[in-house]
Computed example of a mutant assay.
Amino acid sequence: MTENPAARHYSKQQAGSLTTGDQLLLPDGERTAEILQVEFEPDDFGTPAVVLATLTGGGTIRIAAGSSVKILNTTVVDTTHDAEVPLPLAVVPSEEVEAAPEAPAVVVPPLPPIPPAVSGPSAEELARIPAPKGTPEAVVAAAAEAHPDDVGVLLLADKLAKGINFKSGSCLKDLSDLAHELFITLKDPDGALAVADLLNVLPFDGNPGRWASVEASLALSSYICRQDR
């Protein structure tokens, strides 16, 4: 079977690499034929010298093993047609555009109410707290003198007698513990209030640790003042 080689693509290869099924361009350069069988004829030294290609349409072609022949390239894909035809663009019907749902309106929640500003006691309220008699160390010493046999009071008073620093969290806690010791253990509300008032006038400085002692002192003072004395 032979074919017209017009508008065909060929590749060159050595005759010694021909295989069954190759489309060989015949010597006239106009037709091709499929190879049915390939045999080799050796020279006097035993080296393959001539290729015997049997064609499907009948006949045999003798080709020198080292010569080049043209084989029809059946894997070439013609892409010129695809390159000339542009891809169609997707067109959205106007009805679909008009029927598109509108985006939901953005709902902005109202701002939360502004909490009332935290305010401390007024100057009038602070004026109601009696001023301590003497220095803070003197107030602590007076509490220790009133209870010379109580070990808890003496230990706290001894620590505070070295100097009271109202910016020290440990000093504030010792004062709060002393006030609670005087009221709860020794049943001395006057002495407890005198010590607690050292803390009750302190404002909140932004440190929760130090404020815990002041808060405990305020709670104790409020409780004492509510009792029938």
Rank of each mutant, 00 (worst) to 15 (best):
I35C: 03
T80R: 14
D149E: 14
V51S: 07
E102G: 07
V38I: 01
E124Q: 13
P112C: 01
A117T: 07
D44P: 00
D44N: 08
P86N: 10
V140P: 01
G120H: 04
L111F: 04
P115M: 06
A100L: 13
A127G: 09
A138V: 01
E145T: 12
L126K: 08
S94L: 14
S94N: 11
L87F: 12
A64V: 09
G57R: 05
D44Y: 11
E34F: 06
S67K: 07
I114T: 12
G120E: 05
I35R: 03
G134D: 03
V118R: 06
D82A: 15
E95V: 14
T80N: 13
L72S: 14
V51A: 06
L26P: 01
P115I: 06
D28I: 05
I114K: 10
S68R: 06
L111H: 09
A53H: 07
A105T: 11
T54N: 02
L111E: 13
R62P: 01
T56W: 09
P115F: 05
P121C: 02
V92Y: 09
G46D: 04
D43I: 01
L72D: 15
V85C: 10
A103P: 08
V92S: 11
G134K: 00
L52C: 03
V97F: 07
E145I: 12
T135C: 00
S122F: 06
T79G: 06
E102P: 07
P88C: 04
G134Q: 06
S122R: 09
G57N: 10
F40N: 04
P110V: 10
D149S: 12
T80Q: 14
S67Q: 12
V139M: 02
A65Y: 05
T60F: 07
P104A: 00
D44A: 11
G46P: 00
L126H: 05
V151S: 10
P109Q: 03
P88Q: 14
P121V: 00
E96K: 10
G152I: 11
A83G: 11
V76F: 14
F40M: 11
E124F: 05
G29Y: 02
A49W: 07
E102D: 10
V91W: 02
V85N: 13
L72P: 02
L87T: 15
V106C: 00
A90E: 13
T80V: 14
L26T: 04
A64C: 04
V151C: 00
R62E: 13
V107N: 05
T79D: 13
T75E: 15
P48D: 05
E30S: 08
P110Q: 10
V51K: 00
V139C: 04
V97A: 12
T54M: 05
G46L: 04
G58P: 12
F40Y: 05
T47I: 06
E34V: 08
E102R: 12
P88F: 02
P113R: 11
H147D: 01
A144Y: 03
A49S: 12
P110G: 07
D78N: 14
A143C: 04
R62T: 01
V139Y: 03
E30C: 06
K133A: 08
A99Q: 13
A105G: 03
P93N: 12
I114P: 00
